[in-house]
Design a protein around this nucleic acid. Structure first.
Length: 559
RNA sequence: UGGGAGAUCGUUCAACGGCAGGACAACGGACUCUGACUCCGUGAAUCGAGGUUCAAAUCCUCGUCUCCCAGCCA
């Protein structure tokens, strides 16, 4: 991990914080991660989680988890729970500081009353369309609402009656009285409270009025004594409003909003709306589909929290719009798994090999290293016998020049065991397809080079036909065909990669994998990293997800 | 179009007036019982035009391009 083996992380936000610490502006640092519980967390949220919790840890501060549940539409307990699971899984801890904006509703209401009393807010009877019209445009100033100058007492009364449920949805709103001519549209008397009778997942029908983000967020930060309120770039326009509310209503130290660029990842889509579409449109299997860029999806795919954290550290934090190459994420995953994943052999597309000169009943238990570079990880027993399966594409009838594997008359090393030579093939008479390979083995080559000094370059993996365990393997590829699906103007369903999932039945894995538990990760040698699916795998029918392939320089040569 | 923000190798992040650097990607090679890993090496950038300065990616001026804002979403 970056935090462990190198310099502490640094970026423009940490510079601001260090400066604030140095000048004594704050005694301690308090951040928060404020998701709205209306969807699952994705890798973009992970960036923010790592930033907020990472900063708290680095500067000995705290990071709160706050559900920003101010709009009941779409919010649910399922999401509250998934968010907590995902953050914990990523390796962060909010201790006893789980908060809900909805718990602040009474305080927020009182803040609103204070605003009214200061003459800085009013109840407006305009409907949504009228408010939009009155707001003006980017180039033209807005017009004042006819209700803008209502007396304070009337506003207080009306606002109380809004709360009491006397008005229909959409008939009244509370607005801040700022400046209808502001070049910053955010400041043109923004709506502060609206009436919504949809029912809230936590508080039921207790409230029929709900505060807007701009009002609730900055005040929630203030209530929690957040020092640095870190959010994404699209809130830059809202910062003056953030400061306006805080300045009107909060005494003493105030939180400071800082914006950074959200993550964009090539070949994926990170907008919550799009992810909801994928899930609800059944374009994927669910929020935790291994192709999804959600934390739950990546977990199910087999990504490690360490790899995700490392990725978040490496992409950095800045204010530039970006499109990070997904190859970097894959690199982080390989880098982590290469260190820790036990090795195993699995054959995805089996081709039967009969070793004619190997004794019929003989079985050898071969000790294979669990990790060739880490002898301390020990060994595992892998049975070897006369009939084995090898990978179908480790044989070619007419191999090209640089091909190192099996072909007629060629020799190849069976990983961790003998050198074999291909003598003949048996074909399906009607299709011409090669069904069986007949080989002879060189008994002197187990754990040894051929005694006559001949070089055997190719090494292939295998499993013993009699001992191997049937398994299902799912191969995953990028969900989208194009690098920047969010930027493409095509219908987004047409951008999906039809080959993002390939399920292969009839695979064989070595017998030691009988004990594989859900979420166990392995390197299937020469193939990639695989993870026993946390939901679908069973001892009777193991199911492995390909997390990421190994780098494949042969694929480039072959092209 | 008003306002806000941003432009540095293919991508991403640095360089805070003093030799433009790292990572990923790419390419070449070495090693190899994983065509993996590792190691060595190569190519690759300051949006443009002026100005200030001994010295500019950095400061100034004028342009250009990109992103965000006209939800009773966040």
């Amino acid at each position: 991990m970056t935090e462990q083996d190198g310099a502490p992380q640094s970026d423009f936000i940490r510079e601001i914080i260090e400066n604030d610490l140095k000048t004594g502006k704050h005694g301690g640092i308090a951040t928060r991660f404020p998701p709205e519980p209306n969807g699952y967390l994705h890798i973009g949220h992970a960036k923010s989680v790592c930033l907020n919790f990472g900063i708290a840890a680095q500067y000995n501060g705290t990071c709160n988890l706050r559900m920003d549940d101010t709009d009941p539409a779409g919010e649910s307990l399922e999401f509250v729970e998934s968010i907590q699971n995902d953050i914990r899984w990523l390796g962060f801890d909010w201790e006893d500081r789980l908060f809900f904006a909805s718990d602040y509703f009474e305080q927020l209401y009182q803040f609103a009353v204070t605003l009214i009393k200061k003459g800085k807010a009013y109840v407006c009877d305009l409907n949504a369309d009228e408010i939009r019209t009155y707001r003006g445009t980017l180039t033209e100033p807005g017009k004042n609402s006819p209700h803008r100058d209502r007396p304070v007492e009337e506003n207080i009364d009306l606002f109380a009656r809004m709360r009491a449920g006397e008005f229909e949805d959409g008939t009244h709103v509370l607005r801040a009285k700022i400046d209808m001519a502001s070049p910053n549209i955010t400041l043109r008397d923004p709506v502060v409270y609206r009436i919504k009778r949809s029912g809230h997942y936590r508080i039921g029908d207790g409230w029929v009025i709900y505060p807007m983000y701009d009002f609730a967020h900055c005040l929630s930060d203030s209530i929690e004594k957040i020092t640095h309120s870190i959010c994404t770039l699209e809130f830059e326009n809202n910062r003056p409003l953030y400061d306006w509310f805080v300045n009107e209503l909060i005494e003493g130290p105030r939180p400071r909003q800082i914006e950074f660029a959200r993550l964009n990842l090539s070949y994926t889509m990170l907008s919550k709306r799009r992810l909801i579409e994928l899930v609800e449109g059944r374009l994927v299997g669910g929020w935790d589909d291994p192709r999804m860029p959600t934390v739950a999806g990546m977990r199910r795919r087999g990504y490690t929290p360490e790899a995700i954290r490392e990725f978040c550290a490496r992409i950095g934090v800045a204010k530039n719009d970006n499109l990070v190459d997904i190859a970097l994420l894959e690199h982080c995953v390989r880098d982590d798994l290469n260190e820790r994943a036990p090795r195993a052999m699995a054959v995805l597309r089996p081709l039967k090999v009969i070793i004619d000169n190997y004794p019929e009943e003989q079985v050898e238990e071969i000790d294979c290293p669990i990790h060739p570079q880490k002898p301390e990880m020990g060994t595992r027993k892998v049975p070897f016998s006369r009939i084995i399966y090898i990978e179908n594409d480790d044989f070619m009838e007419n191999p090209p020049k640089k091909y190192k594997r099996l072909g007629p008359g060629r020799e190849v090393r069976l990983r961790n065991s003998y050198v074999i030579r291909l003598d003949s093939t048996k074909k399906n008479e009607s299709t011409g397809e090669v069904m069986e390979l007949h080989c002879t083995y060189d008994p002197d080559t187990r754990n040894a080079a051929p005694s006559d000094g001949r070089k055997v370059e190719g090494v292939i993996h295998w499993v013993s036909a009699e001992h191997a365990i049937p398994a299902t393997v799912r191969l995953y590829d990028r969900l989208f065909k194009v690098a920047d699906p969010a930027g493409a103007d095509a219908e987004f369903a047409t951008l999906l990669n039809p080959e993002s999932l390939e399920t292969i039945h009839g695979c064989y894995v070595e017998s030691s994998l009988a004990s594989a538990q859900p979420e166990d990760r392995y390197q299937f040698e020469r193939l990639g990293y695989f993870c026993a699916d946390r939901k679908d795998t069973s001892p009777a029918r193991p199911v492995f997800n390909r997390i990421v392939s190994l780098r494949d320089s042969w694929a480039k040569i072959a092209k």
